[in-house]
Design a protein around this nucleic acid. Structure first.
Length: 286
DNA sequence: CTGCACGCCTGCCCGC
DNA sequence: TGCGGGCAGGCGTGCA
């Protein structure tokens, strides 16, 4: 589910409450999500202090004052929600604040009486603890392409990648080793803003069009982050609020509706590429 | 090597 | 109303 803008929104939500805070308790309700959770995770985390909350692509990085960093991935339906711990003074039994949902899998509590709940219906998410010095050699991170909102992302670099790909631009932009963080929604949106058809072969794109594509990637992601990401079914901000970028979709979920480009009278078409839906305007995306 | 179908899970929506 | 099929924001595996 969550793509770069949603993950960044969650990161910004948890950053102020986690940074500088000490982990006082970790409750883990199952041994695995998509993969096994780190062995003895609660024991390894309790007592550690969060030094920073970072992000690489769709992965949240919880930096700690111990030798390990916690990596969190939200998969398709993962959420991170902040909630207050019940105060002992007002504690009643049963304490409704301690009744967790069936999809709450990990709870991390902090010294200032706030807790963070990891909830994931489909359990495609994952967590791992890895030594700081090996963080970017982790299999999840090692092969990622440039961060699209960093200086590592350039038209020239993107062109070098596209030139070597003989498949559709849609599939290539979904490939996390080409550029990190895009998913099915934002690839559709970015291609609409660039006027590029999702079915065009990546290596056929000329420099000028790739420059437009690169600029669209940057501007769409920044705009989506500004709007708190896109809330369809599962995604929520850490505060529980909805993002609202979905109200600005030009293509995604708009099959049969009119193209929103000026002076275009086309309708949005839905096709399947590599098993995933692509939405585009056949008239103004060429 | 590349590209792609598949599976992992649960829930929801649609058509019959 | 009930039920089966298809679909969903990701990603690693295995095969051609």
């Amino acid at each position: 589910m969550p793509e770069l803008p949603e993950v960044e929104t969650v990161r910004r939500g948890i950053e102020p409450i986690m940074t500088g805070s000490e982990i006082t308790e970790v409750k883990q309700f199952r041994a695995d999500l998509r993969w096994p959770l780190p062995l003895n995770m609660p024991k390894r985390l309790i007592g550690a202090k969060v030094t920073a909350v970072g992000r690489r692509s769709k992965y949240i990085l919880i930096h700690l004052n111990i030798e390990e960093t916690l990596i969190i991935h939200l998969g398709m339906t993962g959420r991170i929600l902040i909630s207050e711990l019940p105060s002992n003074k007002n504690r009643v039994f049963p304490n409704t604040n301690d009744i967790f949902g069936p999809h709450d899998h990990v709870i991390i509590e902090f010294n200032h009486k706030t807790r963070v709940i990891y909830n994931d219906v489909r359990r495609f998410g994952a967590m791992d603890l890895i030594k700081k010095s090996l963080l970017y050699e982790h299999p999840w991170l090692a092969k990622l392409g440039p961060e699209p909102l960093s200086n590592d992302f350039s038209t020239r670099g993107l062109k070098d990648q596209l030139d070597r790909k003989k498949t559709s631009i849609k599939s290539v932009l979904m490939n996390q080793s080409v550029v990190a963080g895009l998913g099915n929604i934002y690839v559709s949106e970015v291609l609409w803003y660039s006027g590029i058809s999702p079915i065009i072969t990546a290596s056929d794109l000329k420099f000028e069009r790739i420059e437009g594509l690169k600029n669209s990637i940057t501007s769409v992601l920044l705009d989506a982050i500004d709007k708190g990401g896109s809330s369809l079914k599962d995604y929520r901000k850490a505060s529980g609020e909805l993002g609202y970028f979905q109200n600005y979709f030009k293509t995604y979920n708009r099959e049969g509706l009119e193209c929103l480009s000026d002076e275009c009278s086309g309708r949005i078409k839905k096709i399947i590429q590599s098993g995933r839906s692509s939405y585009y305007c056949p008239f103004c995306q060429t």
